[in-house]
Simulated scan of single mutants.
Amino acid sequence: MDNIRILIVDDQILFAESLKTVLETRGDGIEVVSIASNGKEAVKMAEIHNPDLILMDIRMPEMDGVKATKIIRENHPQIKILMLTTFDDDEYIHDALNYGATGFLLKNTPPMELIASIHAARNGLVLISPSVAKHLTDGMSNNLKMKKNSNLLANHPEWYLKLSKREKQVLKLLFNGLDNREIADELYIAEQTVKNHVSLIYSKMGTHDRRSTILEAEGRI
């Protein structure tokens, strides 16, 4: 199999160079084609190098990683994008998922776990670091406790209230037996975006596959 060609995007040059060294010395079959220091450079480098996968920071000057992800995925839907995040980036994560990001990993992810995630992402898996998913759902749960009244909580399970409007649409279609491609066609969104939503649905419901999700949702949506 050909090398996985990687573009690293981060405004912290020391971090980016260190990451490049780790990937090239410890990542079998990984080639770093370039480093960009902001989203605007990332868009340009994606055009020049056409990488297989981009490791994209979120907060950067000139253009952030979310906007860059939107532009790159629109122009090059075959490029996978893994967002490198911190616990302060909650507000950006849902937008990035909607724009087709392949997943989210914490910046302090151990090197071998990061390398394994790169290979998995190349093979089409949606990756959300468990700690990131837990942080997101915990935050949503706290917000819901403040916003939802007791009657609404009584009518729906807690996990249902954590779902976004789009996730509820995806769950309903999944429950009706549609696969990812059929859901994408029904909602006029990319199949990768459907995979992202399904991954978040599993996390919020505490399920691990379609069968357990359908069983949990039966009679409750």
Rank of each mutant, 00 (worst) to 15 (best):
E158A: 13
K168A: 05
T207S: 03
A68D: 12
K67V: 15
Y188M: 12
L55N: 03
S37G: 12
F15T: 10
D11F: 06
T25I: 11
I115M: 00
I189S: 05
E62Q: 14
V170K: 02
H49G: 02
I30S: 05
K165D: 09
D95F: 12
G65L: 08
D52C: 05
K195G: 04
S141Y: 14
K145S: 10
R181F: 14
R181A: 14
D10R: 06
P77I: 15
I118E: 02
L153E: 14
T102F: 00
K195N: 13
L136I: 14
I4E: 03
D95K: 10
H119G: 02
M83C: 11
N75L: 14
I183K: 07
D90F: 08
L178N: 12
N180V: 12
R5E: 13
L97K: 01
L55S: 04
N151S: 11
I71E: 11
K20C: 09
G206N: 05
L171T: 11
N123T: 02
G27Y: 07
E158F: 10
W159L: 02
P157L: 05
I48G: 00
I8S: 02
R73W: 09
N75G: 14
T85P: 05
K172L: 15
R166W: 01
R26G: 01
G219W: 09
I79S: 11
M56F: 04
F175H: 10
S203H: 12
E47G: 07
M45G: 00
S141C: 07
S164W: 01
L153G: 10
M140W: 13
T25Q: 10
T86C: 07
A154Q: 06
S212C: 03
R220T: 04
I115L: 01
S199R: 11
L171W: 07
D89E: 07
H119N: 05
S203G: 08
L178C: 10
S203R: 04
D52T: 00
D185A: 15
H76D: 12
A133G: 03
A42K: 08
A154W: 01
K40Q: 10
L114C: 01
P51K: 03
S131F: 06
A96F: 01
K70Q: 15
T193D: 04
W159K: 04
T137E: 11
M63W: 14
S150K: 10
